[in-house]
Amino acid sequence: MAHDLNHGAPVADLQDERPSVGQIADVFVRYANFTLGGGSATTAVIHGEIVGKRGWVSEEQFGLSFALGRLTPGTNLLAFCTGIGWGLRRWTGAIVALLAASIPCTLFVVIITALFAEWQENPFAQAAIKGAIAAAVAVTVKTVWTIAHPHFRPGNRIRAVLIGATAFALHTFAGISPIDVLLLAVVIGFLLSASS
């Protein structure tokens, strides 16, 4: 009997249809590693494969893993894949999905990083890298907005700006470490919810 991803409640007798470890590895190697366009694009591709095409999980199960993946620390996409794997075959599924979703792209990045160190000796490559790094600075600044904008809603904007600006100032001007600022954020978040 397969179980609901949320609280272990039975949802359907899917035991015979549970994908094998090999099938889970195959799907996550192919669709979680090589999609360009970031986590959202990859999630959409995986949705088409495991909900639409193969019917491994329901929309609700997929949605729960997606939502909790976004609330899990670290790389959201990997947490999402782990959650799906857990729903399919518990610990084995979770570990296989996590490894399959992370090892191939990691190897690719290691190779590119090693080559990058070699290319730095080449003057043409040096010039190209300078431009690429300027674009990366823009990407980093844009990511600030990507992270913050879901919380920049009407009625919440002043709170979002105050929290973001305070974190910026505490680290930049007061020299407080990021970890301490984040711990302070936990306390502030708790107090704000108690007062509202």
Binding site: A148, H151, T166, A167, P178, V181, L182, A185
Partner: peptide
Amino acid sequence: TIVITSAGLL
């Protein structure tokens, strides 16, 4: 609060 703080720190 943690997410917005992360944005400020970034």
